[in-house]
Design a protein around this nucleic acid. Structure first.
Lengths: 327, 327
DNA sequence: CTTGATTATGAAATCGATTTCTGCGACGCT
DNA sequence: AGCGTCGCAGAAATCGATTTCATAATCAAG
């Protein structure tokens, strides 16, 4: 690989001049042209490692997510990447598996690789951001909150949980259960709270008997749904607080011969890869793209030196109610 | 952030000694302990950028895939990450969107960031690997071939296409169409060839009228399926050469009221997020995990200096035939 | 015509780690 | 005792770019 010195030698100038040409500083036109020709001839590409070491900052953004196999997060990643690319940054994607240790490792790597900034979906509400914050690198959290004072983009979770539950009541279901995510994830807690508030108002049963906590994946949804179906207080509908648990629940229902609308299903999140007829499942569409682009926007403004108190952006979900087939 | 010099000063030794302690070279025990204590006190973490610059190689592997929203590739990414982590490497994930320009950019970044190696799912059979190969960085291609002589892991595509088609004939379907991926992707070509070979042997129709080329995503499958259903030569079954096109086809069939087994469906790939009853769709399960772990294994051995002619590993798919409900 | 300001340029310092080179002291062998 | 070997440790070079600093040349203003 050709270095800046090779280019300088070939063009008959100093390395400093070569650097200036590539960074848009004042260089006389004839020299600049000689440099460009030399660089072309040697197919010179600046070494990012050296640049990063000197500049103390790279053009790479870390996107740290809990589960790369969840379409919600890949859609987020997609949005983040598109927007970051447009702003001149590359994105590296890191998967924590909801493991705080992995998360800490990736945050450490972000620091020691001098990355420009971090977009983080925290593994839990106890994720430790103190090190990365102390390092001065900008951080934006997305989708889930922590106790730390950083820029944040999230969804209006409680209203999402409430509206999907209300829609199921409206459709005529009477005993609506809830498959909630892990208790360490605020998103799950808030959505379940939304469900609970509506049940307390409109339901004629004890919510505590109708809620199951599960991991945020397919098998979590499956297990919880099976449990609900086996319980003596059998529900006639269910709200899943994320997409994959929703799919798991639908799979189990299908195995029991209970497809919607025979059994009501509400999901907070989208189901991109299912083959269900549209309109049978009540769902809250989440603004994944907005989530990602907003986060990148905030991060980039911080990277360019923006100093202000941390901001929080709340984005609403959009209810897509199933037809009220039960009425 | 504390540097190696800070640690050296605090411990009363030279920076070289600090480096040696962290890299397992001979250092007397008392000094080593002083260094460790100092590092602990300053919460020192080595700067990877500086290390990479000096070593001319980082501990980061680039995984470049065409579509991060396709569960096949995210499962691959998952496998790659797990295995790489175990071998002491981090993985950065790059999404090319099947765009050769984006792909070239990421390959260039891999070089100029001094990454340890690249695992690549080529965007097309014309992807240009000459630059990355010339750079001396190890490359392993996965799933799709190119004309370049590099280590490669792929699936036995033609047999996969043949077996799924044969299974549909066995189940009693007679006019089996094919939704094939883009013509620039060898995987798609080979799988379609497998379908064709069986049709030529067992079908009583002209294969050319029953094949549609589509993009590898949901909408590609949907469009192709709709077209097939509207054609005068209407098929009674279809083979989709990848997972997402399969889902798209199933969605359209569902909208037409044609769910399997009324209409036969074969898919090469897995359908993790569907809610179909198992056993209705004939599919070829792909060894995604093996694909990823094998690729990492080959790459790591190259990184550690293994010199030998490029190897190709072929992994078989596994047929899961639907019950022959038509017979 | 001088002086101060401005511009273009190269030399050299810098980022933070690794690694080579060099030297010192201890040890073993004859 | 003398010589070679070995191990440990520090000084300094190195990776490749950016950036500061110094300098020479050019220009404008008085």
């Amino acid at each position: 690989m050709a270095t800046i010195y090779d280019v300088a030698t070939l063009a008959g100038v100093s390395p400093a001049t070569v650097s200036r040409v590539f960074n848009g500083r004042a260089v006389s036109e004839d020299r600049a042209q000689r440099v460009r020709d030399a660089a072309e001839a040697l197919s010179f590409v600046p070494n990012r490692t050296a640049r990063t070491l000197r500049r103390q900052s790279s053009e790479v953004i870390a996107l740290i997510i809990p589960d790369i196999e969840n379409p919600f997060f890949t859609a987020l990643a997609r949005a983040v990447e598109d927007r970051a690319q447009a702003a001149g940054y590359s994105v590296v994607l890191c998967n924590t598996d909801d493991d705080p240790v992995k998360e800490a490792t990736y945050l450490q790597i972000a620091i020691s690789e001098n990355m420009a900034g971090v977009i983080l979906v925290p593994a839990s509400d106890e994720s430790d951001l103190s090190t990365i914050i102390a390092s001065g690198r900008p951080v934006v959290t997305v989708d889930r909150t922590t106790a730390f004072d950083v820029d944040h983009v999230m969804i209006e979770n409680e209203p999402a949980g409430a509206s999907v539950t209300a829609a199921l009541f409206d459709a005529g279901y009477q005993r609506i259960a809830c498959i909630a995510g892990p208790e360490t994830v605020v998103t799950a807690i808030d959505r379940a709270r939304g469900w609970r508030s509506v049940v307390e108002r409109r339901g004629n049963y004890n919510p505590d008997l109708f809620v199951r906590s599960a991991n945020h994946r397919l098998d979590g949804g499956r297990a919880a749904m099976a449990e609900l179906l086996a319980s003596p207080e059998r529900p006639d509908a269910v709200v899943a607080t994320n997409n994959l648990m929703g799919v798991g629940a639908l799979q189990v229902l299908n195995e029991y011969g209970l497809t919607p609308p025979a059994f009501g299903v509400g999901v907070i999140g989208d189901l991109p890869f299912t083959t269900l007829s549209p309109g049978l499942v009540t769902l809250v569409h989440l603004p994944t793209r907005d989530l990602g682009t907003t986060a990148v926007g905030m991060l980039v403004s911080r990277i360019s030196g923006h100093r202000e108190p941390a901001r929080t952006v709340l984005l609403p979900g959009e209810l897509a109610a199933a037809a009220s087939v039960r009425s």
